[in-house]
Design a protein around this nucleic acid. Sequence first.
DNA 1: AATGCCTGCCC
DNA 2: ATTCTGC
DNA 3: GCAGAATGGGCAGGCATT
Length: 795
Amino acid sequence: MSSGKKQTTLGRFFTLPPGTDVAVPIQSKLRAISTSSKPIDNENVASLKVEGTSSKPADNENVASPKVEGTPVKGTAAKRPKSSPDNKRPKKQMVASYSGETSSKPGSSSRHDEVDSGSEAEKPSLPPAAGREMLKKLAGDVPPAYSDWDPGKPTPYAALVTTFKLLEGTTKRLEKISHTSRFLRQVLRLSPDELLLVVHLMINKLAADFEGVEMGVGESLLMKAIGESCGRSLDKIREDHRECGDLGLVAMKSRNNQLTIFAPQPLTVAVVHKGLLDIAKVKGEGGQGRKVSAIRKLLAAAKGDEAKFLIRGLEGKLRLGLADRTVLVSLSSAFITHERELKGQKPNTAMLDEAELNLRSVYSELPSYEIIIPAIREHGIINVKQYCKLQPGVPVKPMLAKPTKAISEVLDRFENRRFTCEYKYDGERAQIHYVSPKSSIEYPPATLGGEPIKNLAKVFSRNSEDLSGKYPDILAAMNNWVRPEVESFVLDCEAVGLDEINNRLLPFQMLQTRKRKDVALEDVKIRVCVHAFDLLFLNGKPVVRESLSDRRKLMHETFIEVPNQFVFARYMDSSNLEEITVFLDQSVKDSCEGLMVKMMDGRESFYEPSQRSRNWLKIKKDYIDALGDSLDLVVIGAYWGKGKRTSVYGSFLLACYNLGTQSFESVCNIGTGFSEAELEEFYETLHPLEIDRAKPFYDHPNGNAGKPDVWFEPKVVWEVKAADLTLSPRYRAAAGLAGHRDKGVSLRFPRFIGPRTDKSGDDATSSSQIAEMYLRQDQVANKSAAKGVDDNFEY
DNA sequence: AATGCCTGCCC
DNA sequence: ATTCTGC
DNA sequence: GCAGAATGGGCAGGCATT
């Protein structure tokens, strides 16, 4: 199933007004292939059960191994192979035609493949034929999809929406880039001053993340607005939403059924942007009502698909298969093509590649379109590098890590390279920026119309939010650990909660209770220790293109460790499997999540997230098969899926079994780990088990909040994995047994591993086992060991 | 003033 | 966060 | 392997309701 298909897939009972082009729901087709809907209630099912309950052809790999009864703890659960590729049901052919376009051959590689293929000296070779076709399109042989508006006049919102529709019509990334680039070029040609606005609407942002502009609008308010705007009841809207899994579609449908008396003024990109900004700004008493009426006003001016994308934008999910990274590439192509066009020429492949590499590298240092776009317009995409450099005040996108399933995988990947292992701390990412008042350099403003930066101390989050107001303690202590001669720096760290009494790190759940806004130094209750692991900028110069080995050295020379305030992340440089294993174990004992593994030398160790964002590896115990907490839980409810999960269950409510009270206590929802085929299958097998209401022996809060859309007979059991067990205000599992009067236990990062067809509902993991697993955890066990009896301690 | 619901943001 | 999927 | 889109628990903060 591809994203393009999903976006246009509608619910089972939902129909659109005539003239709306929408793909046939795949589910109906897949369901026809699926045969058996026999409930899984048989106790004596042995090895062949999996086949009995699915439409899969016989396949030796699908034999579920029997499992020791009654021991659903760590690592004992039977492993169930995932469906092998040849099991997959035939996929629907995608209809992705637009103006005579022939799509490129499947399997053909693109120039991006070439660029990413990883050699140290990467000079892309010529792409194969299909790629060249695409490049020609990028270079502008095809006329714009939306006819030109008057130059200098506002960009019609309809033009953007036309592009969005084209994007929905294909799953191919190169085609998406082509459409996007073509439209951006049109904007550059006709209304260049609006390019920034357009790009912002494409990535669905109103301002830089660190400016803290919040929409304050979610599903609830949107449903209200759509209902009011179209004169339909909230219940009707909810019903539609359940059926088509997308509020944008609901809005479009509702508007199309509505008689419009006055033809509204056509929306422009600028008007929409301003409208959204105004909605975001609304605050205070009666604010929600004012937000709703502002949304209504925008909606009233929206025609057809405009309503769909307006609402999707407000919901924060455009579902275009187009996000930051693809826009970045499209933008580079648009600029170079536009620049060449002005000279009556076209860019060749090398130029396109150069432009892309340039923009990626610029964005890597200074991820702010607000600054980059005007700079490119002024200096050209080839020269812009000199003008846009990493600087304090603009948060860098952080390097991320790829999960690895075994230490041996790490060794394979980094074979013959020098690498380092660092503790992976369980806190909050903190990118610390600093410019000393004594600094001789003045940095450009971080935003359009902002002040130049002379003196600054800020903390940014993993997602570039400004956390300075949350961590006044970090900022106030900086003079303890920054050498006085330091002029400026950007430092990548993890802020971790500190238990000073026991001299340990606090669990994340504890750190989370810190206040967030405008915290005064005296009000800090949870102390924090900064664990620094990388240096991105020092004394006026970016160091992201130095090797990690050099960056680390610089970092150690520049800062002073102060116990419990500022330390360097603990690390070990070894390629020895056994030593790494020991270090991993040690990290867990020290309240960490596992290890980060990073290359030490060469290009691959640079800090360039837009070039290769997942160049680091992470290894945690629960990634390793046969390690980590595994539970067998009963499916007692489900929620309707949205977006690409429309018309199947998108997530499920799971429970454990309390042997004493003979009741099923809710543990968690689960929504990841399923293949699309499995989601289809589970809809088939669970739908017949739906019941009107919760069983009296289901223990789950009564409120509307966590109530599933449907309840089930307690028959189906699944194996589920989690990183940790946590105290829960919301779930009932082992309530009271974990040493905290009313709180139950839930799972951190739960994911689906496989069905346990050999188990019936009351064979599920029991409440007491869950309590035991919770109490056994290092952080819980060690805490009371150190502190003495401490069972009434409340988080 | 207390409670409940919603949203955004951490992981 | 974790996981799956098309390219 | 990337990029995108599904989905998790749980907290503070802000508004609405009682």
